[in-house]
């Protein structure tokens, strides 16, 4: 399989958030600022790539019947490592992402890639697939975070954009804003991008 197709699939054709709609919980919860979005993206890319590599290495020894529990333990191990790393080196980010770091374990995206890709393909390709899917997740999350932070707090990466007279629309940083902006984003993606690929 060509590496470029992997990346095209991960970012556009099979984008985990915008097309497959898996792992939406963390997407909605942590996109209130761009900084949180970037932090979560880094965590997801790290866990996805590492777990894909390890599962691909073990794919010949894992008995088919108990593969899911084994995948979950591998993923949980990497999530715990990422969690401890963030707690040690990025305390503020660790605090603001909160419970959604341990919840990466149950992010369907990671289990889905383990099951449908890493357990059937070689190590290098699986690693690339992890990075590609992770990037697809990041693109969607950062786009959502940018819209929500600019409209909801009038800032980008914490820097104020419009001066003091700007009254931010707090709906967009509230939970309701997450649902609405993601719905519109997927709608836009369907209207402009998806049509072009299928044509």
């Amino acid at each position: 399989m060509k590496i470029s197709t992997l990346f095209k699939n991960g970012i556009i054709k099979e984008n985990p958030v915008l097309v497959q709609l898996i792992g939406i919980c963390s997407v909605l919860a942590i996109t209130n600022t761009v900084e949180n979005s970037l932090g979560m993206s880094a965590a997801v890319i790290a866990v996805l790539t590492l777990s894909n590599i390890v599962i691909s290495l073990m794919r010949k020894f894992i008995p088919a019947k108990i593969r899911i529990p084994i995948f979950i333990v591998v993923i949980a191990t990497f999530v715990t490592m990422v969690q401890m790393f963030m707690n040690a080196y990025a305390q503020p980010l660790y605090k603001s992402l909160g419970i959604f770091i341990p919840l990466i374990v149950v992010n369907c995206l990671i289990l889905a890639r383990a099951e449908s890709f890493a357990s059937k393909n070689g190590v290098f390709v699986s690693a690339m697939d992890g990075i590609a899917m992770g990037l697809g997740y990041s693109v969607a999350v950062v786009a959502l975070g940018t819209v929500r932070e600019i409209l909801g707090s009038g800032s980008f990466l914490g820097m104020s954009l419009f001066g003091e007279s700007f009254q931010p629309i707090s709906l967009f940083v509230a939970p309701a804003g997450a649902f609405i902006v993601l719905g519109l984003l997927i709608g836009l993606f369907n209207a402009f991008v998806k049509k072009r690929i299928t044509d």
Binding site: L171, A174, A176, F179, I186
Partner: peptide, 13 residues
């Protein structure tokens, strides 16, 4: 899904 998400947003309000 998009319209469901938007409906969920309104419900969240």
């Amino acid at each position: 899904f998009p319209i469901t998400l938007i409906a969920a947003g309104l419900m969240s309000i």
